[in-house]
């Protein structure tokens, strides 16, 4: 249990997907205009990443390993994740329309999200068990949601900032993202376990 807690803590803070692994940067910059859209994206990622961690672990353990084709895990995972997202979308639409409405347009966007694939690959790389994989996937997505929400708040303030003209728009956005990343680098000094 303690092990799982450590994995989750690390995934959220010290090894945050966005600020220290630099995965999932496109949605991070793309849908962080407003806290509400950021939250929608975060929820969709959390949902998909948790389920995909479980499924990709099973695919690796029960299909790729016995057949000794572990080296093709990246391709297999892309296939599995893409299918999974489509499947989840259809399922939600039929049985949980409220959640489908809330996640709406963000679900299809995640089909090729590098953070989702990244968490699946990291699970294998670190040799996590099933439970650990799911916990890691869930916690990483929580870290992602936190990061994107924080940045959505920063962006709302940036809209009123008056930087020099050459920094207006995207440049000042990237600079503030790097500052946020540096703040998170402070966590990397923590030794866990």
């Amino acid at each position: 249990m303690g092990n799982i807690f450590l994995i989750m803590f690390a995934a959220i803070l010290t090894e945050n997907f966005i600020f220290s692994r630099f995965l999932g940067i496109c949605p991070f910059l793309g849908v962080s205009n407003k806290p509400s859209t950021a939250l929608g994206m975060g929820m969709a990622v959390t949902f998909v990443m948790t389920v995909s961690s479980a499924v990709t672990w099973a695919v690796y353990r029960f299909i790729l390993q016995p057949l000794k084709i572990e080296y093709l895990k990246t391709i297999a995972f892309i296939l599995v994740i893409a299918t999974l997202v489509q499947f989840i979308e259809m399922f939600l639409r039929k049985y949980v329309p409220a959640l489908y409405g809330a996640l709406g347009i963000y679900l299809p966007l995640i089909t090729t999200n590098c953070a989702v694939l990244g968490s699946a690959l990291l699970n294998i790389q670190k040799g996590y068990s099933f439970g650990e994989s799911v916990a890691f996937g869930f916690a990483s997505a929580l870290g992602f949601t936190m990061a994107i929400l924080i940045f959505a708040g920063v962006r709302e303030r940036l809209a009123f900032a008056t930087p020099p003209k050459c920094f207006k728009g995207f440049p000042i956005l990237l600079i503030s993202a790097s500052l946020a990343a540096m703040a998170f680098a402070g966590f990397s000094g923590m030794k866990l376990g």
Binding site: L79, Q86, F87, F91
Partner: peptide, 14 residues
Amino acid sequence: MGALLALSAKLFFV
């Protein structure tokens, strides 16, 4: 995977 999606598209048809 393709068959699964095709099937679920029928199954979860809205």
